[in-house]
Computed example of a mutant assay.
Amino acid sequence: MHVRHLTTTLTAADAYTMSAGRLGAILAALLGLAGVVVGGLALARPASRLGIGSGRLGAGVALGAGLIGMALGGLVVATSDDGIGTGNGRGGAYVALVVGLVAVVLGGLALARTRRTAGRLSRG
């Protein structure tokens, strides 16, 4: 056998290999998506008494999930070695950053709405 048959070359990760970057990007995107869902529910139903997607609790959960998703996505982007398509999770991390930002915006809007409605109720 020749030595060249025994050596391996480092290439992009296999399509079915779950690297740490891919797992981090998936987790960050799922956190951001959960924040978007809860933030949307809190924005659509601010006065509902049932569920986590209502009022200040829903807004806080959306803000927290969005911020954690963005932080984890940023960490994956900062620590990945190569570009998109190499299996390091950079593409998913970019998606997580955008989805996390949407969750933060929805959570902030829902929190502003709950503060505005609470101010009206206390005056009225």
Rank of each mutant, 00 (worst) to 15 (best):
L57C: 10
G58R: 01
A59K: 00
G60L: 02
G60Y: 02
V61Q: 06
V61A: 13
V61S: 05
A62E: 03
L63A: 07
L63V: 11
G69W: 12
M70R: 06
A71H: 08
G73I: 04
L75G: 13
L75P: 13
V77W: 04
V77I: 09
A78F: 05
A78K: 08
A78G: 04
T79D: 14
T79C: 11
S80E: 01
S80K: 03
S80G: 03
D81L: 08
D81P: 15
G83H: 04
G83V: 01
I84W: 12
I84A: 15
I84G: 14
G85V: 10
T86V: 14
G87M: 03
G89W: 00
R90N: 06
R90V: 05
G91D: 01
G92N: 09
G92C: 10
G92Q: 06
A93N: 05
Y94P: 05
A96C: 06
L97N: 02
L97G: 03
V98Y: 08
V98W: 09
V99G: 12
V99H: 13
G100E: 12
G100I: 13
L101K: 15
L101F: 13
L101Y: 15
L101H: 15
V102A: 09
A103E: 08
V104S: 05
V105Y: 09
L106C: 12
L106P: 14
L106F: 11
L109K: 05
L109Y: 11
A110L: 10
L111P: 00
L111T: 01
A112S: 09
R113S: 09
R113P: 15
R113N: 14
T114Y: 00
T114N: 00
T114A: 00
R116V: 10
T117N: 10
T117M: 06
T117D: 09
T117I: 07
A118Y: 05
A118F: 04
G119K: 12
R120Q: 08
